[in-house]
């Protein structure tokens, strides 16, 4: 327990100092993206990893949050940071609607329903032009020219999310979540209100994903439906971040986010410009190959399968 706190403190200090050491905008940008994915991956993990509701639609919350911030700033001229404060709450509202519809279904049907719901949200954003500007998207000018403020906002968000997930999972709620995942009928027969706790898990998950979405709007200053409601690049990416790091572990998704963004960008920059240009064009291919590799050989992620990795390494020596 104590040792864990020391380690957390060290990690926190490293991350606070990091952007002061790394002055390149490009690498700061990567760090910001990675921190954002820490939040989203962790959120997905709470709902899917711990509560067992495999969502293929986290882009719904991400997009809702992003559009909340964007529309407030673009149409009403408020600060986009107000939107960031509200983005989480609108995402929770969206989450309750989705929960109302999709929680009637279980297992693979739930997953299917979330894919469909995500696609519907994307199409609404495309077609409701008076509100969302449709395919044109929302364009803002960033508040800050430096990456530094964004880095610290992202860091604060990531830290807050990890803290909340940790607290929740140590509380009674966490126990209920896991029992619903293990056997919903048994949990209900023990008097756990499954519908309530599933919605609760969804709400917390949606809140942080939505806030991350609103942050994305502020930071990237441009969104369109294809970007923020994307099935592969938001919903699936959220799953992959969690899986690669380790599902149903607190630190797994955080580690997964660093790995995913790190590897993706390494290939996107063609291994720091050392490899020929075609490597950077095939970074999406590498992403896909990595998914296959991880599911085949590291199904419980790097954190979850650590003993297995260690065994392999030790043996090969």
């Amino acid at each position: 327990m104590k040792r864990n706190q020391v380690i957390s403190a060290i990690i926190a200090v490293v991350f606070i100092i990091l952007p002061l050491v790394v002055t390149s905008d490009y690498y700061r940008h990567l760090a910001i993206l990675a921190l954002m994915w820490v939040v989203i991956g962790g959120s997905w993990n709470l709902l899917a990893g711990y509560t067992g509701q495999i969502s293929f639609g986290h882009a719904i919350f991400f997009g809702t949050g992003a559009y909340t911030a964007g529309i407030l700033a673009d149409k009403l001229g408020t600060s986009a940071w107000l939107g960031m404060a509200l983005g989480g709450f609108t995402a929770v509202l969206a989450g309750l609607v989705i929960g109302f519809i999709c929680f009637r279904l279980r297992g693979p049907y739930f997953a299917l329903a979330t894919i469909a719901a995500g696609e519907i949200c994307r199409l609404i954003a495309v077609n409701w032009e008076s509100l969302t500007n449709g395919m044109v998207g929302v364009l803002l000018i960033q508040t800050f020219r430096s990456k530094l403020p964004y880095y610290y906002v992202a860091l604060a968000l990531a830290a807050a999310s990890l803290l909340v997930f940790n607290l929740v999972m140590k509380s009674k709620w966490g126990f209920y979540f896991v029992s619903i995942r293990e056997d919903q009928d048994a949990a209900e027969s023990l008097g756990i209100n499954a519908a309530l706790y599933k919605n609760l898990s969804l709400a917390i998950s949606a809140f942080f994903t939505g806030t991350a979405g609103a942050f994305y709007m502020n930071y990237m200053a441009f969104i369109d439906p294809e970007v923020v409601f994307s099935l592969p690049y938001i919903s699936i990416m959220a799953i992959l971040v969690a899986i690669i790091g380790g599902v149903a572990t607190i630190w797994g998704p955080a580690v997964g986010a660093l790995i995913m963004v790190g590897i993706q960008e390494t290939f996107r920059s063609a291994i720091f410009g050392l490899a020929p240009k075609w490597v950077s064009q095939s970074h999406a291919l590498v992403f896909g190959l990595m998914v296959i590799f991880v599911i085949l050989y590291l199904a419980n992620g790097v954190v979850g399968d650590w003993p297995k990795i260690k065994r392999l390494v030790v043996r090969s020596r």
């Binding site: 380690i7 050491v21 630190w251 590897i263």
Partner: peptide, 23 residues
């Protein structure tokens, strides 16, 4: 042991961020 892994991975990720870009 898991925490050692965490630090290691953070380190790897940091190294990824810190590596120099092309001139």
């Amino acid at each position: 042991m898991t925490s050692f892994l965490q630090i290691l991975l953070v380190g790897v990720a940091l190294a990824t961020f810190l590596a120099p870009g092309p001139a």
